[in-house]
């Protein structure tokens, strides 16, 4: 398994990262180096092992805590939009979205 520049471009687009030409090739070799050390991991026999998604859930009995359905957040639009790049009459502005 070895990543090609085409893979890099596909992933970069999925992640919405604009890459410079030299960045592409560097990333390509660096990622391939990295996946070199990952091969060991792929070889491990994990049949029958339950994936551990939450580190303290060793007994597998962790349950989601639920909140009572009560509305309790005041309007803080101004404070929330202080760091917004482009706002007009309360709306966040973005380049035209075509459907």
């Amino acid at each position: 398994m070895s990543l090609t520049l085409a893979d890099i471009d596909r992933l970069a687009h999925l992640a919405r990262l604009g890459l410079q030409p030299d960045e592409r090739s560097l990333l390509c070799s660096q990622l391939n180096d990295f996946f070199g050390i990952v091969e060991k991991m792929r070889a491990v026999d994990t049949s029958g092992v339950v994936p551990l998604a939450h580190p303290v859930d060793v007994r597998g009995d962790m349950a989601l805590r639920l909140r009572e359905d009560i509305a309790g957040e005041p309007n803080q639009r101004e404070a929330n939009q202080i760091s917004a790049p482009a706002v007009e009459s309360g709306l966040f502005l973005v380049p035209k979205v075509i459907e």
Binding site: E88, L91, F92, L93, V94, P95, K96, V97
Partner: peptide
């Protein structure tokens, strides 16, 4: 999409 010529409001 209506308002803000050339831009979309969210």
């Amino acid at each position: 999409h209506e308002d803000f010529i050339g831009q979309t409001g969210i």
